[in-house]
């Protein structure tokens, strides 16, 4: 049976984004810093930001020539992003052995202050350095000093891009979704997949019967509720996994969607690939699966 790419759209919304370049003496410590600072940052439903490792960087690509990683962080406003990034860099990067933290986006008017806030940790012994057009703070710490850039550039990014992989065998469905994650991470820049391992198994819908909750389980894709609620699952499906994509640009999210959909659809045990939307009420950006496959998908 040929898996079906459902003619539907993912519904995405704007979020403010920043990119942090983390470096350390070894690739392992750089990655530790990146993973730690993007912990508890899967969904703004209950986290202060959505963040994840974007890419492992070659020493030649980093500002100080050491091994590094880039991390993208998304939040609802610049203020929220500034607060979240400052907290995350302060608690998770500054604390990480040998680390340094740089801004990975052009600094324009719409930038946020990170190093410029963390500097107070230096208790008066922090040192400012202007290098080129950028300002850095040197904060004395127990293994030397923590170097952190004063300001981080921000862009209006796109969050909530997604695709849902449906199948009849849970392990094969998960394997297929993992392939999609791998493909996106290997081939796409400027995007992150903020959920655990890039995958959400508790996809959500907007709203709840309980007034206090902004979101609740996506009943249309919960196979055990088939028969008691309206379902969007194919008849044989017993399992669905969602990949959520946040990107710096609409195009980046669309490309990643196309790669994800195409990869997942080619895997055994996949009955269909669809996307989550909320009737067009949640976000202004609609990513039509067939449309992005058409534009960015690779010829089969």
């Amino acid at each position: 049976m040929i898996p079906i790419v459902v003619d539907t759209f993912a519904e995405a919304f704007p979020m403010t984004a920043a990119r942090a370049i983390l470096t350390a003496d070894t690739p392992a410590w750089a990655e530790t810093a990146a993973r730690t600072m993007s912990g508890y940052a899967t969904s703004v439903i209950a986290c202060d930001a959505e963040a994840a490792l974007e890419r492992i960087l070659d020493p030649a690509e980093t500002p100080d020539g050491r091994p590094g990683c880039s991390v993208l962080v998304f939040a609802f406003s610049r203020d929220a992003l500034e607060k979240s990034l400052t907290n995350r860099v302060g608690q998770c990067v500054m604390t990480c052995p040998t680390s340094a933290c740089y801004n990975g986006l052009p600094v324009a008017e719409k930038s946020i202050v990170v190093g410029g806030r963390l500097r107070y940790f230096g208790d008066g012994w922090q040192i400012s350095k202007w290098i080129g057009e950028r300002r850095y703070w040197r904060i004395p710490v127990m293994d030397g000093e923590f170097l952190c850039e004063e300001a981080f550039g921000t862009v209006k990014g796109v969050a909530g891009g997604n695709l849902i992989v449906m199948g009849n065998d849970p392990s094969r469905t998960l394997a297929a979704t993992e392939s999609a994650v791998q493909a996106i991470r290997a081939r796409c820049r400027d995007v992150i997949l903020p959920f655990p391992g890039g995958i959400a198994r508790s996809g959500s819908k907007v709203g709840s019967k309980y007034r206090a909750l902004r979101a609740s389980t996506n009943t249309a894709f919960a196979p055990m509720l088939r028969g008691v609620v309206t379902t969007d699952l194919p008849a044989e499906a017993t399992c669905a996994y969602e990949i959520v994509i946040d990107g710096l640009t609409m195009e980046a999210v669309e490309r990643a969607t196309a790669v994800g959909v195409q990869t997942a659809a080619g895997q055994p045990g996949v009955l269909g690939v669809t996307a989550g939307n909320y009737g067009g009420n949640l976000g202004p950006f609609h990513i039509r699966l067939l449309d992005v496959l058409d534009r960015y998908g690779e010829p089969v």
């Binding site: 290098i131 080129g132 040197r138 030397g144």
Partner: peptide, 16 residues
């Protein structure tokens, strides 16, 4: 005796 990170940034900038 230390190996200062910021110097690498200055080196790169001056070379540029």
């Amino acid at each position: 005796r230390f190996r200062p990170q910021f110097l690498a940034l200055i080196e790169r900038e001056l070379r540029r």
